[in-house]
């Protein structure tokens, strides 16, 4: 892509934003408007900005982002469903000076992998956990997630999530924030430019904390799922703001004490 362009009226403009070099050229397989891609972009932008591509090892989950390693141009491992943080633990323990992140969805992290998630955080593994919470199982076709909202219609809760039968949405980020060994726990989103800027700051800080060996950093990203929610991407933004954020309020849950 050109570094500079001349506009029609002769004004010269310089490139100020481009696709991060730490992404591969492979086009995303995600549905139009999916937050996964935005978070991939931001994550890889931070890796490029911090110059840590050579030190970074990622762990992909099972779920829509099972192919995260097709897009992120860093060394990666694909974990079994729910086990990404255990795999990340294995990597980090034998290479404590490398930077390790796991990237997991709500089913992976908060249902089948709850034990691994809690215990990884409880050990304070010096890794970054990126948790994509869109309240639904996207890959398998829109089934109920542990984080689906009360009354939410999914293919396995066709009359709405009945909390008397299946319980309430699990606020696992709040649980993780209670654990003494976690260092930085925050809930972010990627639904508008400001949110993306904040998310980028949170990821940047998390990698810096990891370099300083501070312990587990945990970032929940409250995300959309246009296909699973059966909405247009633009409609999902409204749903996030009006329905998801009131239940999953954005902001830091645990910040380092200075």
């Amino acid at each position: 892509m050109e570094e500079k362009l001349i506009l029609e009226d002769g004004i010269e403009v310089e490139q100020v934003y481009r696709r991060p070099e730490t992404l591969t050229d492979v086009p995303y397989h995600y549905c139009p408007g999916c937050s996964h891609s935005v978070v991939h972009n931001v994550l890889m932008e931070v890796v490029a900005d911090l110059g840590i591509q050579e030190q970074t090892i990622g762990v992909a989950p099972v779920g829509c982002s099972v192919f995260a390693y097709h897009y992120m141009n860093v060394d990666m491992q694909e974990a079994a469903h729910g086990r990404a943080s255990a795999v990340a633990t294995g990597i980090k323990r034998v290479m404590p000076d490398k930077l390790v992140f796991s990237y997991q969805g709500d089913g992976d992290l908060a249902a089948i992998g709850t034990a691994e998630t809690i215990h990884t955080a409880n050990r304070g593994e010096n890794i970054l956990v990126v948790f994509i919470n869109n309240g639904i199982y996207g890959m398998t076709g829109g089934q109920m997630a542990p984080t689906s909202l009360p009354g939410m219609v999914t293919s396995t809760s066709p009359y709405g999530r009945d909390v008397s039968m299946v319980g309430y949405p699990l606020k696992i980020t709040e649980l993780v924030a209670q654990l003494p060994a976690t260092y930085y726990v925050t809930r972010q989103s990627a639904h508008n430019p400001n949110a993306v800027r904040k998310l980028k700051k949170a990821i940047t800080k998390s990698f810096e904390y990891q370099q300083q060996k501070k312990g587990t950093c945990f970032i929940e990203v409250v995300s959309n799922c246009p296909s699973g929610w059966k909405m247009t991407p633009v409609e999902t933004i409204k749903y996030l703001e009006e329905v998801m954020f009131p239940y999953y309020p954005l902001g830091d849950l645990k910040v380092p004490k200075n």
């Binding site: 403009v13 086009p27 891609s37 430019p193």
Partner: peptide
């Protein structure tokens, strides 16, 4: 920033 496809270059 919000483009999921990282398809936009800005000048």
């Amino acid at each position: 920033l919000v483009c999921p496809e990282a398809a936009i270059t800005v000048y």
